[in-house]
Amino acid sequence: MSSDKSKPDSEWRTILSPEQFRVLRRKGTEAQGSGIYDKHKADGVYACAACETPLYKSTTKFSSGCGWPAFFDAIPGAVNRHEDNSLFFMARTEITCAACGGHLGHVFKGEGFDTPTDERHCVNSISLSFSDSGGDKH
Rank of each mutant, 00 (worst) to 15 (best):
A70N: 06
F113I: 09
V107L: 03
S58G: 10
H103A: 00
E52T: 11
F21E: 06
M90L: 15
Q32E: 13
I126M: 02
A31N: 12
L104E: 01
D9W: 10
T60G: 03
G67N: 02
C97Q: 05
H121C: 04
G44P: 07
P116F: 10
P8Y: 12
E83F: 13
G102C: 03
T53V: 04
R26M: 15
K41C: 07
H138D: 05
S2W: 09
P8R: 10
G77W: 08
C66L: 08
A50S: 15
S10I: 01
A98F: 03
S63C: 06
R22H: 15
P54C: 10
T60A: 08
G112E: 08
C51V: 08
C122K: 02
V107T: 08
N80M: 11
A91K: 15
R92T: 04
P76V: 09
I15D: 05
K61L: 02
A98G: 03
V107P: 04
A91F: 09
P18F: 05
Y56P: 01
T29V: 12
G65S: 08
A78P: 05
M1N: 10
Q32M: 07
A91E: 14
W12L: 01
E111D: 14
G134R: 09
E83Y: 00
D84M: 10
H82R: 12
A31D: 13
G28E: 02
A70T: 07
S34W: 05
E30S: 07
S17L: 11
N80W: 02
D43N: 12
G35R: 03
F71P: 01
H40Y: 14
E94H: 12
T60L: 02
Y37K: 08
D4W: 05
E11W: 09
G134Q: 09
A74L: 00
F89H: 11
E19V: 00
D114G: 01
S127G: 11
V107Y: 03
S86Y: 04
R26Q: 15
A91L: 12
M90F: 14
K39Q: 14
A47M: 09
I75S: 09
A31F: 07
D73F: 07
T115A: 13
G135W: 12
H138Y: 13
R22T: 13
R120L: 08
R25V: 04
C48H: 03
G77V: 11
E83D: 12
V123E: 11
K109W: 05
E52S: 04
S6H: 02
R22L: 11
D118T: 06
D38F: 01
Y37T: 05
W12N: 06
L104N: 03
E111V: 12
I75P: 03
A31T: 10
L128K: 08
P69C: 11
G28L: 10
F89M: 14
S34P: 07
H121S: 00
T59M: 01
A91V: 15
K41W: 13
M90S: 11
T60W: 06
M1C: 12
W68R: 01
S133N: 15
